[in-house]
Amino acid sequence: MTVSLSGRGVGHSFGDLTVLDGLDFEARPGEVLGLVGPSGCGKSTLLELIGGLRQPDRGRIEIDGKEGEDARLERCAWMPQKDCLLPWYTALDNAGLALRNLGRSKGEARAEAGLLFDRFGLAGFEQSRPDQLSGGMRQRVAFLRTLVSRKDVLLLDEPFASLDAITRAELQEWLLPVLDEKDHTVVLVTHDVEEALYLSDAVLALTSRPGRVAASMKAPSTTGFPREQVVTDPGFTERREELLALLRQSSPSIAGGAR
């Protein structure tokens, strides 16, 4: 299949501070591109650049061959690090926001978003307010909200960073088949190397600021196996250690590597 998303020589600065420099990347429909890197390396900024929420200072980002900011915004749905669920809407109405914005009626939006609640293990929580949901459920509603937009490109910014380890592992295992079955192009930002390798088809490791590509790696095939089996497989752990070593090298020091 053709390339859906590509970046060439992408760089960005905030004032004098260069956060990203000379990044090349690409992803095809159905692929998950994992972005890992130390905090402050510009991963989140890169997502916003891809999504058309910002325009890069240098280089070009294309989606379906289109370069414009608006063209990218039109094709991407962004899931921010915080779930950003709106407290004045029910879970169901939060999930259907994209449809309401497209001018669909409340009833239509609810019916369509509601179809996914069962599959996402959220049945019975349609009318709950966000603050009545657990952290894991909130993230699932936020992901559902992103998916309901029917956009081709999904940009996930540390979707599980706020969760405890057990819930995170559960949601990773839940997300994998969801991502696999659709033809979305997914960019997944995470600081968790294991999560990146588990969920992605290819992983891009960034250096600390300014973020450059430290390594690009094919991820092992993980679909169809239980998560525990995958992440303890010698092939998987080998790549994990390799990536961690790379990230460690590219960070100047632990103390100096902070934001």
């Binding site: 058309g52 994209a98 309401r100």
Partner: peptide, 26 residues
């Protein structure tokens, strides 16, 4: 309003008036 909420809505087809109605006014 949290700027991230606005960005999120922008990627979900929201224009200025919808951002106003759905996040800013509430």
């Amino acid at each position: 309003v949290d700027p991230d909420s606005v960005k999120m809505l922008r990627t979900l087809y929201a224009g200025k008036s919808q951002i106003f109605r759905r996040v800013e006014a509430p």
